[in-house]
Amino acid sequence: MKKSIAVIGLSRFGLNLVEDFSKLNVDIIAIDHNKENVVKASEFVHNVIVADSTNIDALKEAGIGNVDSVIVAIGQNNPANLATSIITIIKLKQLGIIDITARADDKDSAEALKLVGATNIVLPLNIASERIAYKISSLDLVDYFNIKGDFSVAEIKVSKDFIKTAIIDLNIRNTYNLNILLIERKGSIIVPDKDTIIEPNDEVFVFGRRKDIPKISNLLT
């Protein structure tokens, strides 16, 4: 059975979510009070509705009470929008929705949204800036993703001058508290074991604590 997800708020962040979800095996309901945003979202999903998310009857009519998860993707660029997010979450709780993920643009907003019932908080501005900072600060870092807390995955480009070495001989796990999850080599994906050889120009996906990732970068480049 497909999971059903509602996205409330279809500005840039919400619209990106709808586009991403449209590529997955889920049922989506998308809602915004702005007709222009709804038209944009309709390019990706069929069930898109112009509605006031602070009105519980409008939420019921849209079928929100029957979904598994709701994402409140409304930005908090002004106090009115934060108030809309807060009221929306309260109405969702009244409908019996348990899994509510809310967008917050700062820590104060995050605390307020948690207090009224959000079960998960995402801070897209922080995520984006963190990825950009890591990529710009490292010549060999292809990409960077925060997973949870201080655990992250980094994609690192191995130097062309690197000497071929087996993962077990690098002793990465014991020395750096890191794990190599995947290796991309000439367009192919390799799921490595301890005997896998890392070669020059490989792209390796490394998992571990944020503070430890730069250590392996120096080893591979």
Rank of each mutant, 00 (worst) to 15 (best):
N66D: 15
D99L: 12
I86F: 03
L95Y: 05
I28V: 15
L24H: 09
I71K: 09
Q76Y: 02
T84S: 09
V45N: 09
H33Y: 08
D27K: 12
L82C: 06
K35A: 12
N77F: 10
Q76A: 14
N66A: 14
E36F: 10
I64S: 02
Q94F: 01
I89E: 00
G96F: 12
L82E: 07
D99S: 15
G63Y: 06
D52M: 02
V38I: 13
K23M: 05
N78H: 03
S69A: 15
L95G: 03
N66C: 10
A41P: 10
A73G: 15
T54K: 04
A41S: 09
N47E: 11
I98K: 15
I90T: 07
V67N: 12
L82K: 03
A80E: 14
A58N: 14
K93D: 00
P79K: 00
D68T: 11
F21H: 03
D68H: 14
A30S: 13
L95Q: 04
K91H: 03
S42I: 00
S22I: 03
S22Y: 02
N66K: 15
D99Y: 11
L82W: 00
V50P: 08
E43K: 11
V26E: 05
E36G: 03
D52C: 02
A41G: 10
I64A: 05
N78Y: 03
G75K: 08
A51G: 15
D99I: 12
A41K: 04
A83N: 06
N34M: 02
I97T: 09
I49D: 09
N47A: 05
V48D: 05
S69V: 13
A62N: 11
G63C: 10
D68W: 10
Q76C: 13
H33W: 04
A62K: 09
V39A: 10
A58P: 11
V50E: 13
N34S: 11
S69T: 15
I89Y: 01
N66E: 15
A62R: 07
A41R: 05
A73I: 14
L59K: 07
A58H: 11
K23F: 05
K40M: 09
L95R: 00
L82D: 08
N78L: 01
V70E: 06
T84L: 08
S53L: 04
I28E: 06
A83T: 10
K93M: 01
G65D: 13
V48T: 15
D52R: 05
E36H: 04
S69I: 13
V38F: 02
V48E: 04
D27P: 10
N37C: 07
K40D: 12
T84I: 14
K91D: 01
Q76P: 10
K40L: 13
Q76S: 15
D68R: 09
A58W: 01
G63W: 07
P79F: 00
N66R: 13
I86R: 02
S22F: 03
K40T: 06
T54C: 02
D32I: 04
N55E: 08
V50A: 05
I49F: 02
L95H: 05
S42L: 03
G63H: 07
T84W: 01
S53M: 03
K35D: 11
Q94D: 13
G96A: 10
I31K: 08
I74L: 10
F44L: 04
I98T: 15
F21N: 03
A83Q: 07
